[in-house]
Design a protein around this nucleic acid. Structure first.
Lengths: 351, 351
DNA sequence: ACTGTGTTTGTTAGCGCTAACATCGCTACT
DNA sequence: AGTAGCGATGTTAGCGCTAACAAACACAGT
């Protein structure tokens, strides 16, 4: 204890090894979850790890792993609600897989995207994570292919390119939300579409429509255009609420638009959820910032990024960088989060 | 060129040294900006660095710097709008100063805070960055002192504890915003306070009041309670707008509350900024999510965190960890961002 | 008993970089 | 001339960890 204090507070793998009475290598094998360690030994080591509060030094790790796998992360919109979770997930994944993270910001233009990727390449990354605006960018995928580097799209997919993806089942999630609304007795349901160039937009719409169709004549849908911004949600809601038979529930394909819907509802004197139910998608910070808080679909953003990092870092182990086995399309579980913005349909006033 | 390709794309310090015809150590001295290198040598090295596209391996660096300075970062609310910027800044600062970042999440309770700090300590950090909820926590500072570790508060300060701080001048910023409102001709201005336990709350209020007082009888203020949440902003605005002589402008001490004010305004049929100007503070994502977009005070969050990391990493160089020279209180420049939510006062209808 | 096959553990070396000290000139003195 | 003193550079060692190989051990079959 006293001895440890001098040592800058850091417990090394050797301390653990000595404590258990094995070689550092064995400890290394245990913490990396390698096979070929007797069960009892493994347990001893794990106990010591816990006792001493050991946590591996990521720098040393990355160094020892022959140059260390470095994974890059491209981002463009630092104020997007999901980014912080995104980063936390990436950091976690990096730490856990012992790889180094290089974060690079880029603008919206294709040139800027290309430049950012080049910077990443210069930094020696073996793989790059692409969140939504870039996940769908042909430019980005091309530039990566040019340098023979693996990319993983998170939360979206680009069908005709190399399709490494980590995402949720947008179709099923939208369907589930729609069912939730239907179950509450809503007959006329408005839907606000997202930006046309994002892959999730189509899937969410499809999920909605499919569920509505399943309900048969018991339900009808009103679909409006939107582009994922608050303002587009507000305007779409204004149109919906001005229609002859306004909906009793509006399902916006993301939270920002749903917040816009709520503003429109307030403006038109509709009480949420008393006279209008509102549902969002993504569970971004704004979902709990507004009042009443939004019913929405929670995406495990951090988990998705962590998975992406892990995929990349494992792919880097496979010696042939060009052929990352077969492309991965991992689907993670989403969750319907019911908060205060949805409630029973007002009354049987439908036609 | 071809040779480099095999080498995982990474150029090492040795490659540079060989290319120039000096020892690696000299290169190291140059890239670390150490004195004691002849000017001509320095230039040669720098040229080679540029030519070869060398970038130092942060892992090796951190390892070689004897255990490497590790700085910890405590966060609790992953959905806070500023977190992503916060992280980006920290990452940047860490990379630039060659230190390692350990990010630790913790809950709101004191126990959870203590536990998180202990985990950080076990991980061997030499300093910890404390964003707002923790910056003001006596517990956090005590726990750090217990382990003899330096803390830096970002965006807030705790006066009677060890006051390493990086922040903006909340007082001046609030005053400037108030002046902006005054300049637009507003005479009756509402102000919504923040949570009582945060240091910024008092300073912002003071800045506001000081400026109002300066205006003399030309202006009057209505101050309402709030706690930095959307809902509290909405409710405070409702009270403000229901008063006999409602204000023509409302200055909320953060963006979330300002968004709540806008909702209240819509609800009461007030057009923003036509009949009511709304101002926020912080320039978080919500400021541009709402419509019209908020006039607010921009904080250089990323810069603040980067500075904090640098302070910590420099303090770690000074051998005596207990006495980090004298405490630092660094003030960074803020910026008044005028968007669409503020405009000229409706008309000279004031008493 | 003795080789073969597999499982568990240890050994050696080195990832890329930088403290700390050693060295090599060189000028400036006594 | 001799040597202290200084600035510029090189050398050695090692940060904490893990590949790759080597060794030790177990137990099967012959």
């Amino acid at each position: 204890m006293a001895r440890d204090k001098d040592r800058r507070g850091a417990v090394t793998i050797e301390d653990v090894a000595r404590h258990v009475g094995v070689s550092p290598m064995t400890v290394s094998r245990v913490i990396n979850n390698f096979s070929g360690v007797r069960q009892s030994t493994r347990e001893n080591v794990l106990r010591a790890v816990a006792e001493l509060g050991y946590s591996p030094n990521p720098a040393a790790r990355s160094l020892a792993r022959h140059g260390g796998r470095r994974v890059g992360l491209l981002y463009s919109n630092p104020s997007a609600g999901y980014l912080s979770e995104f980063l936390v997930g990436a950091l976690d994944g990096a730490q856990r897989s012992g790889s180094l993270l290089m974060i690079e910001k880029c603008g919206a233009s294709e040139d800027s995207e290309r430049a950012a990727i080049d910077r990443l390449v210069a930094g020696g990354v073996t793989g790059v994570i692409l969140p939504s605006p870039h996940a769908e960018s042909v430019t980005a995928h091309e530039q990566l292919a040019l340098h023979n580097i693996t990319g993983v799209a998170v939360g979206a997919r680009l069908l005709n390119q190399q399709p490494n993806t980590v995402r949720i089942d947008d179709f099923a999630a939208a369907a589930e939300m729609t069912r939730h609304l239907l179950d509450l007795g809503h007959k006329r349901i408005g839907f606000i579409k997202g930006a046309a160039n994002q892959s999730a937009t189509a899937e969410r719409l499809l999920g909605f429509e499919t569920e509505i169709r399943k309900a048969g004549r018991a339900a009808s849908a009103l679909v409006e255009e939107g582009d994922f911004t608050y303002r587009s949600g507000l305007e779409a809601a204004m149109r919906l609420l001005a229609s002859e038979q306004p909906p009793t529930a509006i399902f916006a394909s993301n939270d920002d638009m749903a917040a816009g819907v709520m503003a429109a509802a307030h403006y038109r004197g509709r009480v949420v959820p008393g006279s209008l139910s509102v549902a969002g998608f993504d569970d971004t910070p704004i979902a709990t910032a507004v009042w009443p808080e939004l019913t929405t679909i929670h995406q495990p953003v951090a988990g998705m990024t962590e998975t992406a990092v892990r995929i990349l870092s494992e792919a880097a182990r496979g010696k042939t960088p060009s052929a990352p086995a077969q492309p991965v399309d991992r689907l993670l579980p989403y969750k319907l989060v019911i908060r205060a913005s949805t409630g029973p349909a007002p009354r049987p006033d439908a036609s």
